[in-house]
Computed example of a mutant assay.
Amino acid sequence: MKDLFEAIEDLFVNILFAPFDALRALELESWFTANIMSWLFTIIGLVAFVYWMLQLKKFNDNNDEDKSISSHSFL
């Protein structure tokens, strides 16, 4: 049973987390390069936010939504 847990440890420490160790070592040389994935996800999120806001504006300008003031039909 101990061998199984040591195999799981070896898998995570030496194989799956190796890219994160490389990024940690790279951070000492260049902070921007080490955080390139964070910058990439931030840019993708910003583009998605702008797209979503433009779509909401387009549907709002078309007056497609029913904006009558009633909570439920039974009220």
Rank of each mutant, 00 (worst) to 15 (best):
residue 51 Y to D: 14
residue 27 E to Y: 14
residue 7 A to Y: 05
residue 34 A to T: 03
residue 18 A to L: 14
residue 28 L to M: 10
residue 46 L to I: 07
residue 75 L to D: 14
residue 11 L to V: 06
residue 73 S to N: 07
residue 24 R to Y: 11
residue 21 D to K: 09
residue 46 L to H: 00
residue 15 I to S: 04
residue 9 E to I: 09
residue 57 K to M: 12
residue 61 D to Y: 02
residue 72 H to D: 06
residue 34 A to W: 00
residue 70 S to C: 07
residue 25 A to I: 04
residue 23 L to N: 02
residue 49 F to T: 15
residue 30 S to H: 02
residue 64 D to H: 03
residue 67 K to E: 05
residue 20 F to N: 03
residue 35 N to T: 05
residue 44 I to Q: 05
residue 69 I to N: 10
residue 40 L to Q: 11
residue 23 L to I: 04
residue 40 L to H: 07
residue 4 L to C: 10
residue 69 I to W: 10
residue 59 F to P: 00
residue 59 F to D: 08
residue 35 N to A: 07
residue 51 Y to E: 15
residue 57 K to H: 08
residue 62 N to A: 15
residue 3 D to L: 13
residue 66 D to K: 02
residue 8 I to L: 12
residue 37 M to T: 12
residue 19 P to Y: 00
residue 60 N to Y: 02
residue 41 F to Q: 10
residue 21 D to F: 01
residue 34 A to V: 01
residue 51 Y to R: 14
residue 66 D to C: 03
residue 45 G to F: 02
residue 9 E to Q: 12
residue 19 P to D: 00
residue 35 N to Y: 02
residue 59 F to C: 03
residue 57 K to P: 00
residue 43 I to F: 07
residue 6 E to D: 12
residue 43 I to V: 15
residue 28 L to E: 13
residue 58 K to I: 02
residue 37 M to V: 13
residue 73 S to F: 10
residue 28 L to F: 09
residue 75 L to M: 12
residue 18 A to S: 10
residue 20 F to D: 01
residue 37 M to G: 04
residue 44 I to S: 02
residue 70 S to A: 15
residue 61 D to P: 00
residue 59 F to N: 11
residue 51 Y to A: 15
residue 29 E to K: 11
residue 65 E to A: 10
residue 27 E to T: 08
residue 52 W to K: 05
residue 23 L to P: 00
residue 34 A to M: 00
residue 2 K to S: 14
residue 74 F to M: 06
residue 68 S to E: 10
residue 20 F to V: 05
residue 47 V to T: 09
residue 61 D to I: 00
residue 1 M to C: 08
residue 71 S to Q: 06
residue 49 F to Q: 05
residue 44 I to C: 07
residue 9 E to T: 10
residue 68 S to N: 07
residue 27 E to W: 06
residue 14 N to M: 01
residue 24 R to Q: 13
residue 19 P to H: 00
residue 49 F to D: 07
residue 12 F to L: 13
residue 50 V to E: 04
residue 52 W to V: 02
residue 9 E to R: 15
residue 43 I to H: 04
residue 11 L to I: 04
residue 67 K to Q: 06
residue 7 A to R: 13
residue 32 F to A: 14
residue 4 L to V: 14
residue 7 A to L: 13
residue 49 F to W: 09
residue 62 N to V: 09
residue 43 I to A: 15
residue 59 F to Y: 15
residue 71 S to R: 04
residue 65 E to Y: 10
residue 36 I to E: 06
residue 22 A to W: 03
residue 12 F to T: 03
residue 66 D to N: 11
residue 49 F to R: 05
residue 3 D to F: 11
residue 22 A to M: 04
residue 44 I to R: 04
residue 2 K to G: 14
residue 27 E to N: 13
residue 27 E to R: 11
residue 29 E to C: 00
residue 9 E to L: 15
residue 60 N to K: 06
residue 35 N to H: 13
residue 11 L to K: 08
residue 53 M to A: 14
residue 41 F to S: 06
residue 66 D to I: 05
residue 61 D to N: 08
residue 20 F to R: 01
residue 24 R to G: 05
residue 3 D to M: 12
residue 59 F to V: 06
residue 69 I to Q: 11
residue 22 A to L: 09
residue 43 I to W: 02
residue 4 L to T: 15
residue 45 G to T: 03
residue 23 L to F: 07
residue 65 E to D: 09
residue 63 N to K: 15
residue 22 A to R: 06
residue 20 F to M: 03
residue 25 A to E: 11
residue 33 T to P: 00
residue 34 A to Y: 01
residue 39 W to M: 11
